[in-house]
Design a protein around this nucleic acid. Structure first.
Lengths: 310, 310
DNA sequence: GGCGATCTGTACAATCTATTACAGGATGTG
DNA sequence: CACATCCTGTAATAGATTGTACAGATCGCC
């Protein structure tokens, strides 16, 4: 038996460069449905990857296996091993991050997560889990991207999630409608923006719940915020890092998912159905079967031309 | 497809009472080396259990499967499910921030940075440092926020940085103008988007340099990309993490900053001057084209209002 | 100990699988 | 534009696998 420590998945990554186009497709499908698909027959595997059986065989050979049976045997052994030593699971990752900056980024995440107060998380999750409250998110110049990341997750999981307009006039129009039942989430890190701080003040005055994501030096908005998350943003780079904030966002996303799991699941499925209907032309909204449609769009973006055909 | 919730292992336990001696032996061996041994051939399985092949067949039939292939298919599906939806399993409702999931996020960053090839970084930096090339960035549903993060840094450091339109028609209008001198940067992670892949193909066909940010399973866009960055996105959370991609982006930002330091510094100072002019009313200084303003302020968001203002 | 019922293994046929050879097609080069 | 090279799919074949029929073995019971 071949070295049990080296995962087949890693072998694939390593050999990826010497793969042809079709073989890469095989690799991708294998990794995506690893390892189950490798345990099917060559024919079935080839069909899923939309290539011919010999292509799969060549791929397997390039990986260094003696043949398909040999490959499958290796997969089975790997499954067996992972059962036997679930804790000694091979950790193939290189310890060396490659650079000092890499370690700094790790430190940003570690320090940030270490500072999070679970109590604050719990309270915020409870607030976000409340369907009746609207959520209004605003980021600054640098932070609007993390704000977008939070928006993405919130929108997938609940209703009434809005982005506060970047343009002040529109934002003012919006703020006038907010009240006690509404949540305002702000991002403001160093080189703090006055308009964000002002927004916090107004929101607070109107009785909104104000949740602030800021850095270790704390935006002035913290004075009126009801909940504050502080992230480390400083590195040796002249550009502040968003990794800490993003880590908080993703932690919250997971927590909210757990809290709302029973609601989120059907919601996502419904969204998926709508998406399929939206991407298919003038169909009646019947299609519920999970067809991995290649989304017909504009002519220019015609679905993939995968048919060599003859 | 049989109910994915009921594990085959449970079915065995349930049917154990109606099993004969030899069949019980089969059951024991199967449970002991579950599920790997079930993926071998009947003959091999029978040998391990020290019974004959037909005995195994009868055992499988008693479990309610239509035949051995049917049984194996069920096993494979179980493996697939456990990989794809580790969340359909009963999950803990309590969150402990900063411990388990925190470590996973750290691992995402560490693994991603560990896989970066310095040579690719160098090449990409050289490309991005070239003022004459335009840079055109596009992200997918999830990744558009990281794409925004990259855009932020690039815009601060160089000219001709654009976001490719999300709407296909507009994007097509834009792509037609791109050529050999232009750089297209794409983000595409799992649940890959056909429109992004298609954009990659078109850009490649037009001779553009195509830089791809993807995940470990690699978007199909990789087939035509000239440079590929792979990030780890998978965690135990149902939501993929962007921390790895963000870490790459920030690493590139620092590298580009070092490379272009002498150019970037005066550029930033100039931007700062324009910004001040933009926020102060009715002055008349030099107007350049670069029009990414933070929006003109209105009365509500008057700048520099340092007072708490209760 | 003899009998019946149940269990189990052997042998073989039908089917499916992996593999190899080869030719058509794509790609790049001079 | 012709040539060479490299991919990739088709088709044929050798081999292995599943499933079944049947005969021998085992066990319990009278």
């Amino acid at each position: 038996m071949s070295d049990p420590q080296i995962l087949i998945a890693d072998r694939i990554s390593a050999a990826m460069s010497s793969m042809t186009t079709s073989e890469k497709r095989v690799a991708r499908v294998l990794l995506a449905r690893y390892p189950a698909i490798g345990l099917e027959s060559v024919t079935a595997f080839a069909e899923q990857a939309e290539v011919s059986a010999p292509t799969v065989l060549r791929f397997i050979t390039k990986l260094g296996f003696g043949g398909y049976p040999d490959f499958r045997r290796a997969l089975r052994e790997e499954i067996d091993d992972s059962r036997k030593f679930p804790l000694t699971r091979p950790r193939p990752t290189k310890i060396d991050v490659g650079s000092d900056f890499g370690n700094e980024l790790l430190e940003v995440v570690r320090a940030t997560l270490g500072e999070i107060e679970p109590a604050v998380v719990d309270e915020v999750i409870e607030l976000l889990a409340d369907d009746r409250r609207s959520v209004n998110v605003l980021g600054g110049d640098l932070t609007k991207t993390v704000a977008g990341h939070l928006l993405y997750h919130l929108r997938k999981m609940r209703r009434a999630v809005f982005q506060l307009p970047a343009v002040n006039q529109e934002r003012a129009d919006r703020l006038i409608d907010l009240g006690k039942k509404d949540i305002v989430i702000l991002f403001d890190v160093r080189r703090y923006q006055d308009d964000v701080v002002t927004t916090a003040r107004i929101a607070s005055q109107r009785g909104c719940t104000v949740i602030l994501f800021t850095d270790q030096w704390m935006s002035e908005a913290a004075e009126v915020a009801t909940h504050v998350f502080r992230a480390k943003v400083e590195t040796s780079s002249p550009w502040d890092s968003l990794l800490g904030l993003a880590a908080i966002v993703e932690t919250l996303a997971l927590a909210l998912d757990r809290r709302l799991w029973s609601v989120v699941r059907p919601r996502l499925e419904a969204v998926e159905r709508y998406k399929i209907n939206l991407t298919s032309r003038n169909k009646s909204p019947a299609g519920d079967k999970d067809q991995r449609s290649d989304g017909p769009d504009t002519a220019v973006f015609e679905s993939r031309s995968k048919k060599p055909a003859v």
